[in-house]
Amino acid sequence: MDHLDRLEAQSIFILREAYKKFGKLGMLWSIGKDSTVLLWLAKKAFFGHCPFPLIHVDTTYKIPEMITFRDRVAKEYNLDLIVHINEEALQEGMGPEKGRLVCCKALKTDGLQQVVTKYEFEGLILGIRRDEEGSRSKERVFSERNKDSEWDYTNQPPELWDQFKTDFPKGNHIRVHPILHWNEIDIWSYIAREKIPLVDLYFAKNGKRYRSLGCAPCTGQIESTATSVEEIIEELKNTTVSERAGRAQDQEDSYAMQKLRKDGYM
């Protein structure tokens, strides 16, 4: 087994644990590279099937190509797709001009909370990785959230020998993180190896590309000439800029991500 084989086997094991343990299970799909890899891993884990719904929390501020790609793949894979928009917040005029963290909280965190409540999810699969930022580096593979989706990060349960947290009071849910142990280059190497279809935004046009995808107003492009997966891998090997440097909400505060994630952000 090589490096990618080991990462893949561990992720499949985690996905299967989640499917076995949670009657009400859904997987977040942000249309980005990580959750698209996750979808691919699910197809492998369940031999061509994806036995749970995919959830897209749509802020309506997403880059339009993302929505086109979402609808095309959903149709091709015959996915059970839940698209949720926090309509109330939008009607009250929520947007990034109200403050980036306020906007993320309302349209993403609260939007997600509404989905969890509506569908009574016990388990939510998310494509976060430890190398993305500090508070994610401390995450568990199975991470409990209370009924308000809050994360008690100072008192996380022991997690050893792949025995995950599967017992919890009704109303709480578990965030399942099958690719927590992957890094950015792993993701791209795997995309290259498996030839996983991706949204075009990651590939350079006119000297710029997106390295991390989010909402249009808060996501910046990087200078790049990488037009293929191989060129992206080469570019990443030679950069010391962090992956989420283009995500404006992260830079609002020294502990922005910790604060957002404590309240239930992805």
Binding site: P157, P158, E159, L160, W161, Q163, D167, F168
Partner: peptide, 13 residues
């Protein structure tokens, strides 16, 4: 190797 769950919590290994 194994873990022991007490109530909701993994409490021993």
């Amino acid at each position: 190797r194994f873990v022991i769950v007490d109530g909701y919590d993994v409490s021993g290994g």
